[in-house]
Design a protein around this nucleic acid. Structure first.
Lengths: 115, 115
DNA sequence: ATAATAATTAGCTAAACAGCTAAATAAAGT
DNA sequence: ACTTTATTTAGCTGTTTAGCTAATTATTAT
């Protein structure tokens, strides 16, 4: 869960940097579907949808499973939670900075009281 | 706060899809710094660092402020919270799907009881 | 057998990007 | 005035990407 390398994280964020891919992924959070179905709302070729899906798959955000000639696509929470964790980390550091500032202010206050 | 367009979100995730940029941003969550200072840990030219910083800035993740000949860089939580919100949205939908499934199971159970 | 459907692969073009070096701007120190 | 320091701009090369069309593979239906 934590042995994700930088390159893997690159791929995750990159996959999310395109609105077509984000919409596809959002669709999948609501339930599994075929690739054709997944591409229907978009005004691009099926080949383009396949490519977008491959980006999502390589990033680990989506899983495909062959069922006859249809590929069932499924949202992969494992991949997505890596994104969540990274985002959380930044937030923690950022908030930690203010905690440190508060600590500092507290220290100053105590010093003042001692005077 | 909610009038971020798809292209803006593209830029946010894109900015985060590079490990150098992520490291720069992580550094900034811990406190403000100059561009030179920010680039010091990396084995690339200062011009490259400037470009990376511009990507972070255009995405709204970082703010620059000129102080004499030095540019002070600051983490911008406003931009970052948009990323957080998007990530949260996907999580909610995904979890919502299971809630819906639970509801469905509950419905089935009740139907069974009525028989 | 053959036609239709689902999806992929190959090959193309135009645009965007990451890195570089060299040169320019702008402020500060001597 | 001159030099150093901080940063940006311009221009280059190689790589990656998004979109396309055409052709291919694999599965199902008639």
């Amino acid at each position: 869960m934590d042995d994700y390398r930088e390159k893997d994280i690159d791929r995750l964020f990159y996959a999310l940097s395109d609105s077509t891919r984000r919409k596809m992924l959002l669709r999948l959070t609501k339930g599994d579907t075929s690739i054709s179905e997944l591409g229907r709302p978009f005004d691009v070729s099926k080949q383009s949808i396949s490519k977008h899906l491959k980006v999502l798959e390589d990033a680990g955000l989506v899983h495909k499973q062959k069922n006859g000639r249809v590929q069932k696509c499924r949202f992969n929470m494992d991949g997505f939670s890596v994104v969540q964790n990274v985002v959380e980390e930044y937030k923690k550091f950022w908030e930690g900075q203010f905690d440190a500032l508060e600590d500092y202010i507290e220290t100053i206050k105590h010093k003042e009281q001692k005077k």
